[in-house]
Design a protein around this nucleic acid. Structure first.
Lengths: 194, 194
DNA sequence: CTCGTCTCTTGACTTAAGTCAATGCACGTA
DNA sequence: TACGTGCATTGACTTAAGTCAAGAGACGAG
């Protein structure tokens, strides 16, 4: 199953035997049951993850006690919390498995050591994060300009499977609307799909 | 003026003389007049920027020919386009100076060479981008859950000077609303500032 | 299999933001 | 200084999404 990770990594760089081994030593694959909480809002994360199979939801609780879903991570996406700018390094979000999920789990403690030993790895990580940043900026820009209805249509285009995999009220929150609105938008599109 | 850059960099790592010199050799400071276009939607960027003084707007043109502003970069923010996932490496956005702007300009061509010579630099860049990603994710999450009025109030809190520095119709677009709505929201807040 | 809970849908009503249009103001240019 | 363009404001009206509430359906626990 680790070959999925290697395939993903090979998009940026080719690693030699030694580097591959270094990764093998530091990571392991774990299975998580649906509903498992990876870590909670307020915890300081010590791990990072790469999803091989499954789906993880990122959410926080607002002042009125409502869950705000701010991301869904699926196959071939990395989950890493970047809190360098926060003094206490605590996560603002809770991460929980929407389905049974298989992930590569890496240890943040030994991260810098590995980079020092294998600069190639750091280059790869840097590029992965750069791509990630580019994608988030792009998503954000698209989100700003779109109405709730357009946002749903865009999601249907870009991540069609997500619409089926995820509870609708969570999806609604992720799209910045109420569950009622999402229900009506789906109905509207069904009646008059342009 | 380069000391602003060094000060910023020193938040992550301390560089030795040689590394500082390497940076000096590769970057230079440029002054841009208000209205200058750094590069256009559809161009493949060859530079990256770090703002010492001034403000740069990122926008694109939608199907109806309207300008959608998706970001404002100000002092101590970096502008780098990450298009690894795009086959043609072209930018989706146009970047233009909202004010007279002073920036550090770096060359993307020699980037990887520099990292190879000075791994310390790559570590620093990686961390800067990680912080950047964390911030964008945070902004995005906040944007999703907020109404237009709340988004304006948040911006007033977090980047108060931006509200004065930037034309209102551009600000409105950045906040995902029409200029008319922004005008009314400002009026509403003024009358009943809670 | 049944109960209870949670989720989704639907309806009636409210409200904030969008649209269209007119006016007034500020600014740069000639 | 006077003009013209573009931006901000305001008004009247429309509309999509939010809110509140009720009912139907799905699902898991026992």
């Amino acid at each position: 199953m680790k070959d999925i990770l290697y395939k993903y990594m090979s998009r940026w760089t080719s690693l030699n035997e030694e580097e591959q081994q270094a990764i093998m030593d530091e990571i392991h694959i774990e299975h998580f049951k649906k509903g498992t909480v990876l870590f909670k809002q307020g915890d300081a994360p010590t791990k990072c993850y790469f999803i091989l199979k499954g789906c993880v939801r990122q959410y926080s609780i607002d002042e009125e006690g409502r869950e705000i879903t701010s991301n869904f991570y699926t196959e071939e996406q990395a989950i890493a919390i970047f809190n360098h700018h926060k003094p206490d390094k605590r996560s603002d979000y809770t991460y929980t498995c929407v389905e049974d999920t298989v992930m590569v789990v890496g240890d943040l403690e030994t991260e810098q050591d590995m980079y020092n030993k294998h600069p190639q790895l750091e280059t790869m990580t840097r590029m992965m994060i750069e791509e990630n940043l580019g994608q988030v900026q792009e998503e954000f820009a698209a989100f700003i300009a779109a109405s709730p209805e357009e946002r749903f249509k865009t999601l249907q285009m870009k991540r069609p499977s997500l619409v089926d995999r995820v509870p609708q009220h969570q999806l609604a929150s992720y799209l910045g609307m109420t569950p009622e609105s999402l229900s009506r938008i789906k109905k509207r599109i069904h009646q008059d799909p342009r």
